[in-house]
């Protein structure tokens, strides 16, 4: 029964993709977009500043507290 369910899901996707006309172009567009977003833009330009610069949550807390009270 479980095997049948997996087979059904498998064929739902495979037949669905095979039967697409415009969809193939859309998937290509989605793939290119996701590549640009996650591989190019995220990796090159969007580091998580606090995660990269501080090793622990305590260090991050101290840094933010320092920022919040710097003028005093």
């Amino acid at each position: 029964m479980v095997k049948n369910a997996f087979s059904w899901i498998y064929h739902l996707y495979v037949d669905g993709f095979k039967g697409m006309k415009l969809g193939k172009k859309l998937w290509l567009l989605v793939a290119i977009k996701l590549f640009i977003l996650f591989v190019v833009i995220k990796l090159l330009f969007f580091p998580n500043v606090l995660k990269e610069n501080f090793k622990s949550d305590k260090a991050r807390s101290n840094y933010i507290l320092e920022q919040l009270t710097k003028g005093e």
Binding site: L26, L34, L37, F46, V49
Partner: peptide
Amino acid sequence: LAINFAIGVATGIIMEFEFGT
């Protein structure tokens, strides 16, 4: 709907990148 969904999907994730940086 599929066209709009496919082109729009994940455009919001950029805002999460911006939050962290």
